[in-house]
Design a protein around this nucleic acid. Structure first.
Lengths: 148, 148
DNA sequence: ACAATTTATATCGTGTGCGATATAAATAAT
DNA sequence: ATTATTTATATCGCACACGATATAAATTGT
């Protein structure tokens, strides 16, 4: 036993967040295989399906990711023919990210993913609890992203 | 706007889990710098302070990590003088992981980390909500790790 | 106008995670 | 007893994350 109660794994909030995150990603992996993408790539697609056209930084603001993560990720997706990285006319520093026809079409297949996921989570985890969890996490994220 | 309501980032449970996990890790980083370790290395230390002596697979069971993640991680920690990887006498396949004197001493400094963390999270996130979040996440993890 | 600063993206290095596979030791099956 | 299977750890390859830094374009200050 640890000499300090607060250092026991059981008493940490950080570990369940970390473990749940990895488990959820693992849950997505087989579903995303149909689209030949990874989980972070799926998140990029989610924001692009929703907002159509965004700069690298704008995607980063929505997903809380920096350009040093996004640039290679977007390059890989461009190489797969999912999206285009177009230099902005008005501001030559910016790259406008837009989905290709293929990237847009992927949405039709992807729309089944949340449905299938809900099915496999719902065993032993109610919708109400999932909603509460989502709201609590959003509040935590908000408190962690405030300038502090 | 996405054509499918269920594909909007706002409606996903997966994204808050993923984002919160990264934000929490980022919150730990400056605190762990004093010990010159990373967040996953801190988790290894937590279980070793608590259980003293564990095999690679046993650590993996507690942290839900595979040996392909743990082996290099433990090798790096061994190189830093934090722990030892001792071949088991009774079963030559097993490696028993034990903390060095240095690794054990780190606990005295680490015990302040949960205290400092609680301080920075408590602004805008109550203890009750943190407890509820932890329990909900544990239930989610349980439902995701059941054989299904 | 021009130097200083800021902003947008990219590059580099290190450390995870994890699927796939390898290797060696232990156990089970015949 | 010998072969087949299982178990424990390790190796390999790839894709993130992210701190640190670089580069180029835009903006600000004087």
């Amino acid at each position: 036993m640890s000499n300090y109660e607060q250092l026991k794994l059981e008493n940490q909030l950080c570990f369940p967040i970390y473990a749940a995150s990895r488990l959820v990603t693992q849950l997505y992996t087989p579903l995303l295989k149909k689209l030949d993408i990874t989980y972070p790539q799926y998140l990029i697609l989610l924001v692009l399906w929703e907002y159509k056209s965004l700069s690298v930084t704008e995607i980063g603001e929505k997903l809380l990711l920096e350009t040093n993560t996004l640039t290679p990720l977007l390059q890989r997706m461009e190489a797969k023919g999912i999206l285009l990285r177009i230099k902005s006319e008005s501001d030559e520093r910016r790259k406008i990210i837009e989905l290709t026809k293929y990237g847009l079409q992927m949405e039709k297949i992807a729309c089944q993913i949340p449905v299938e996921l809900a099915k496999s989570v719902s065993k032993g985890f109610s919708v109400e609890r999932a909603m509460r969890l989502k709201e609590d996490l959003k509040l935590l994220i908000e408190s962690l992203t405030r300038d502090n």
